[in-house]
Computed example of a mutant assay.
Amino acid sequence: MHEKRIAKLYLRELFGALALYTVLLMLAITFGRPMAPGVLRTAILVSPMIGFGAAIWAIVRQVQRADEYVRRLLLENVSLGAAITAGLTFTYGFLETAGFPKLSMFIVWCVLCLSVVVVQIVRKILDR
């Protein structure tokens, strides 16, 4: 029962943060891009990071609420995902020198998230 309650709380906090991120992102793109370069434009264009920070806060709170076993498992999964991401980004760095197109740094975050999810799924299947 406790796990369900904290999972619901976590999802509410995380999706609230992601909603804030989405709203700020749309506003930044709509109003920030057409502005003349300057401090105000820069502040508006990085404002979605407020939502990103709130998402990190939600994740940290959830990890603090988890027991030691879940914390260890999560740390291992994130570590493996980070190692996979490092390998893939280094490999693509070499491919860029071979003429492959340059990718945005936003791709690294997506690869990290996907890597962690894949690690979690694989480990869940192997633990059966």
Rank of each mutant, 00 (worst) to 15 (best):
M1W: 04
E3K: 13
K8P: 00
L11T: 02
R12D: 03
E13D: 15
F15K: 00
G16I: 02
G16F: 01
A17G: 05
A17C: 01
L20E: 06
L20T: 15
Y21N: 12
Y21L: 13
T22Q: 07
T22D: 03
V23M: 09
V23I: 15
L24Y: 11
L24D: 08
L25I: 00
L25R: 12
L25N: 13
M26V: 12
A28F: 07
I29V: 15
T30I: 02
T30F: 07
F31K: 08
F31A: 06
G32F: 09
G32V: 04
G32Y: 09
R33L: 15
R33M: 12
A36R: 14
G38Y: 07
V39D: 11
L40D: 08
R41V: 01
R41H: 08
T42G: 11
A43N: 02
A43G: 03
L45M: 15
V46C: 05
S47Q: 07
P48E: 04
M49K: 00
F52Q: 08
A55Q: 09
I56T: 05
I56C: 12
W57R: 14
W57P: 00
A58H: 10
A58D: 12
V60H: 01
R61T: 05
Q62G: 00
Q62L: 02
Q64T: 03
Q64S: 13
R65Q: 15
R65S: 14
D67N: 15
R71C: 11
R71E: 08
R72N: 10
L73F: 06
L73S: 12
L74K: 04
L74N: 14
E76W: 05
N77L: 03
L80Y: 14
A82W: 01
A82R: 01
T85G: 08
T85E: 08
T85W: 07
A86G: 06
G87D: 07
G87I: 03
L88N: 06
F90K: 01
F90W: 13
T91V: 06
Y92T: 08
Y92C: 10
F94I: 05
T97I: 03
G99F: 04
G99D: 07
F100V: 01
F100Q: 07
M105V: 03
I107S: 09
I107C: 05
I107Y: 11
V108L: 11
V108W: 07
W109Q: 04
W109I: 05
V111L: 14
L112V: 03
L112M: 14
C113G: 15
V116M: 14
Q120N: 11
Q120H: 04
K124E: 10
I125M: 14
I125A: 13
L126P: 01
